[in-house]
């Protein structure tokens, strides 16, 4: 139930932000993706996985000194919610941080890697009141092993900037 709330909240955010703009044609089949080498695992909806990743971005999981307040107690369908990289001090040092004016992400495209069916490339934009949208991208893998420990989905290539709700600061 909780996971539903989290995802639903994010979807709402995405839809509101997207209001009035033309959504690009989906690059991903609307049907769930079958991951070939993992017949026992439930299929992953790549767009929903991308939304969970963006939800965690909003919760500040890649922020330096993250607070787990914004994801603690919530469960996700695909992600193991924790500070990215196990510890924010090891996750890098993004130059650009957007936290003012309630930044909100909008998925532009989710595309399967042409060479690797377990990889997905996501392009998105973040809008915040009073500033132009900022485009970003990320890549995630659909994990077929170690799922209990690391989750069904892992962020493989990070967005090169960070955005989060200011209320999610420690």
């Amino acid at each position: 139930m909780r996971s539903f709330v989290v995802v639903a909240t994010l979807l709402l955010t995405v839809e509101v932000v997207a209001g009035g703009t033309k959504r690009p044609a989906p690059a991903v089949s609307p049907s769930p993706v079958l991951v070939p080498a993992a017949p026992s695992l439930a299929p992953v909806d790549p767009r929903a996985a991308a939304e969970e990743l963006l939800a965690m971005e909003l919760a500040g999981w890649r922020k330096i000194n993250p607070s787990d307040r914004c994801w603690k107690g919530k469960s996700f369908r695909y992600l193991k919610a924790a500070a990215f990289g196990g510890n924010s001090e090891e996750s890098g040092d993004p130059k650009i941080v957007l936290a003012e004016n309630d930044p909100a992400p909008r998925i532009l495209d989710v595309r399967a890697d042409p060479e690797d069916a377990t990889l997905y490339h996501v392009s998105f934009e973040v809008v915040a009141k009073g500033r132009k949208p900022k485009k970003g991208r990320l890549t995630f893998s659909v994990n077929e092993v170690n799922v209990e420990k690391i989750g069904r989905v892992s962020l493989i290539a990070q967005p090169d900037f960070v955005f989060y709700r200011k209320s999610c600061q420690p």
Binding site: I96, K135, R137, F161
Partner: peptide, 11 residues
């Protein structure tokens, strides 16, 4: 290469 999406990225 990790990103194959041709999304413009401001860095």
């Amino acid at each position: 290469p990790l990103h194959s999406v041709d999304a413009p990225v401001e860095s």
